[in-house]
Simulated assay, not measured.
Amino acid sequence: MKRDHSFDNYLQSSANNVILTNVAVGGRIACVLECQMRLPDCVAVLHQDQELRCILLRRFFNDWNSYLSNKSVAYFLRKYECSPGWREFNNHCYFLNQTMRTWNEAKVECQRHNAYLVEVESSDENTWVTSTYIKPPDQCPVSWYCSVWSGGMYSTTKQNHVWQNSEAIASYTNWDSDQPSGGGQNCINIWKGGKWDDAFCGAQFEFVCEKP
Rank of each mutant, 00 (worst) to 15 (best):
M1G: 12
K2L: 13
R3Y: 10
R3T: 10
D4I: 03
H5C: 11
H5Q: 10
Y10H: 15
Y10N: 12
L11H: 09
L11C: 02
S13F: 06
S14K: 14
A15T: 13
V18K: 09
L20Y: 09
L20M: 13
G27I: 13
G27A: 13
I29V: 15
V32R: 00
V32A: 09
E34I: 00
C35M: 02
Q36K: 14
M37L: 14
L39R: 15
D41P: 02
V43Q: 07
V45A: 06
L46I: 08
H47R: 02
Q48R: 12
D49G: 04
D49W: 00
D49V: 12
Q50M: 07
Q50A: 04
E51C: 05
L52R: 14
C54W: 02
C54P: 03
C54N: 05
I55R: 02
R58G: 15
F60Q: 08
F60I: 08
F60G: 01
F61D: 04
W64L: 12
L68R: 00
L68K: 07
S69E: 14
K71Q: 14
S72P: 13
A74G: 10
Y75W: 15
F76Y: 14
R78H: 12
R78C: 03
K79Q: 14
P84G: 11
G85P: 13
G85Q: 11
F89P: 14
N91E: 10
N91P: 00
H92W: 03
F95Q: 01
Q98D: 11
M100Y: 13
R101W: 04
T102F: 06
W103G: 01
E105G: 09
A106H: 03
A106Y: 11
K107S: 13
K107R: 14
V108H: 01
E109R: 08
C110S: 00
Q111P: 00
R112V: 05
R112A: 06
V118M: 02
E119N: 08
S123A: 13
E125R: 09
N126M: 03
W128Q: 01
V129E: 01
S131C: 01
T132E: 02
Y133V: 03
K135V: 08
P136W: 04
Q139C: 02
P141G: 15
S143M: 08
W144L: 02
Y145M: 11
C146T: 06
C146K: 05
G151F: 06
G152V: 06
M153Q: 08
M153N: 09
Y154I: 08
S155W: 00
S155P: 01
T157A: 15
T157W: 01
K158W: 04
K158N: 12
N160R: 03
H161T: 10
V162N: 09
W163Q: 11
Q164S: 13
N165R: 15
N165P: 00
S166C: 06
E167H: 11
A168E: 15
I169M: 10
A170G: 12
S171E: 15
S171G: 09
Y172D: 07
T173S: 14
W175N: 05
D176I: 06
S177I: 04
S177P: 01
P180K: 02
S181R: 15
S181Y: 08
Q185W: 07
N186A: 02
C187A: 08
I188S: 02
N189P: 00
N189S: 08
N189K: 07
W191L: 04
K192F: 01
G193F: 00
G194M: 03
K195H: 01
K195Q: 07
W196Q: 07
D197N: 15
D198R: 03
F205E: 06
F207H: 05
K211H: 10
P212Y: 00
